[in-house]
Amino acid sequence: MKPGKQAAFLANWTSQARKGFLELLVLNLLGRREHYGYELVERIRDSSGIEINDGTLYAILARLQKEGFIQHRWEHLEKGPARKYYDLTPDGKNALKEMRAVWEDMAGAVRKSGARNV
């Protein structure tokens, strides 16, 4: 495969793989404790090293909220802008459990099937 074509393929594959991964990552972080949006973006950046546009996170949050996996509450601070805190719903906790299991299975399958000579 030509280098340009390979790079395009990898970029596309990474983008596809990242979509599901980011949803799991967001649910995982919210499974530990509630976060507000800005904080979540920072945590994702720190914990995964993935460079994403902040807007991508909000699209994911909107999607997860529409599915009923997360809920929010507003906190009005004396100093500074109001913060919208996100948290998992019971459905979200179940979904996270299922998604983690799927992720573990996939990661295990990749490890088991990995070619040694690559």
């Binding site: 949006g37 902040d54 909000y58 909107a62 529409k66 109001a82 913060r83 919208k84």
Partner: peptide, 18 residues
């Protein structure tokens, strides 16, 4: 969804600027 996303973007930009 539109309202939620705009609300989120607004809160984020406020926080980010702060």
């Amino acid at each position: 969804i539109r309202r939620q996303l705009i609300e989120d973007l607004t809160a984020h930009v406020r926080e980010s600027v702060a």
